[in-house]
């Protein structure tokens, strides 16, 4: 059963087509990821689903409700964490949670959520004194005050340290285990690879690929990647013309090459380095990732 249904959704701001014909659906208990660079239209899409922005056209259903028409009912049932938000600076952490709980007619949820998000020690701290990552965790806690079956998380781990990020990942995995549905946006491919059952890759308001993370990578890259540093200033085309190399991309001084025959390509590469008198450095073999998929599809990285 689909919890979220989106058909040909469109939304323009003046001449910017923020969302330009997006369709997807999310099943019960699924963690669905939206991946894309800045300005791809992730936030716009998510906020239309949350009933916060009107859409221009297309049909949208969340829990069987139309966010454009039944926003009031919908807001009671969903959990929302917004990308950009600030809270009452002079309220204490526990006070903010109880305040938000009261909007849903609930009380006494602070203890549980503070433990869940690892904020117990900060419960009496003022919001303005929290670190960025702690504010982010509070913001996720607020998405949980009404014990919602569907949770929208817009870049939940941005600004968190690796440890906090891991622990939020565990929390999200727990949501999933409890049968909740999660829609999350992210710039981090490892996050998407670890958490998401399916990801939609967005660019310029469109979904350019959508599948499970493994299938996405497999569909685009049969082989592992050869990655190395170079100082020669060779171009992507020059690398791509090496034997068996399918494609190559350069990010700064890091080069990634995908090859049908890794030993053959590797040998040619090492020889090329030798001839130029500048040996290949930091050479390693790695699996292709969503990042590579993204780069291939859009010619850009997820994070600029």
């Amino acid at each position: 059963m689909s919890v979220i249904e989106v058909q040909d959704l469109r939304k323009a701001y003046d001449d910017v087509k923020a969302v330009d014909g997006v369709s997807f659906s999310v099943e019960v208990g699924e963690v669905f990821g939206m991946l894309g660079p800045n300005g791809a239209g992730k936030t716009t899409t998510v906020e239309i689903l949350e009933g916060l922005r009107p859409r221009d056209s297309g049909s949208v259903g969340v829990l069987g409700l139309d966010p454009g028409r039944d926003a009031g009912d919908l807001k009671r049932k969903i959990g929302v964490q917004l990308q950009q938000v600030s809270l009452y600076p002079r309220l204490r952490v526990a006070e903010v949670i109880e305040l938000f709980a009261s909007f849903y007619g609930r009380a006494g949820v602070a203890d549980h959520l503070l433990t869940l998000l690892g904020l117990e020690e900060r419960r009496r701290a003022f919001v303005k004194d929290l670190s960025g990552g702690q504010q982010q965790r509070l913001s996720v806690a607020l998405a949980m005050v009404n014990d919602p079956p569907v949770i929208f998380l817009d870049e939940p781990t941005t600004g968190m340290d690796p440890q906090a990020r891991r622990s939020l990942w565990e929390t999200i995995e727990q949501f999933k285990a409890e049968g909740r549905t999660v829609l999350l946006t992210t710039h981090y491919m490892e996050e998407a690879e670890r958490l998401c059952d399916r990801v939609a890759v967005m660019d310029h308001g469109r979904i350019i690929a959508m599948d499970t993370p493994e299938d996405l990578v497999r569909a685009h890259f049969a082989q592992d990647a050869i990655e190395f540093s170079q100082r020669n200033g060779l171009t992507e085309t020059e690398f791509a013309s090496l034997p068996a190399v399918v494609s190559a991309s350069i990010q700064g001084d890091r080069v990634s090459m995908f090859s049908d025959d890794v030993p053959a390509s590797m040998a040619a590469l090492l020889q090329l380095g030798q001839e130029r008198g500048d040996p290949i450095e930091n050479l390693r073999l790695r699996r292709a990732t969503l990042e590579d998929v993204f780069l291939k599809l859009t010619g850009r990285t997820l994070r600029d």
């Binding site: 916060l52 807001k75 938000v85 849903y104």
Partner: peptide, 13 residues
């Protein structure tokens, strides 16, 4: 201005 209202808008209040 601080987008607190925006966050409140996402609740049923």
């Amino acid at each position: 201005e601080r987008r607190v209202l925006r966050r409140l808008q996402a609740t049923p209040v």
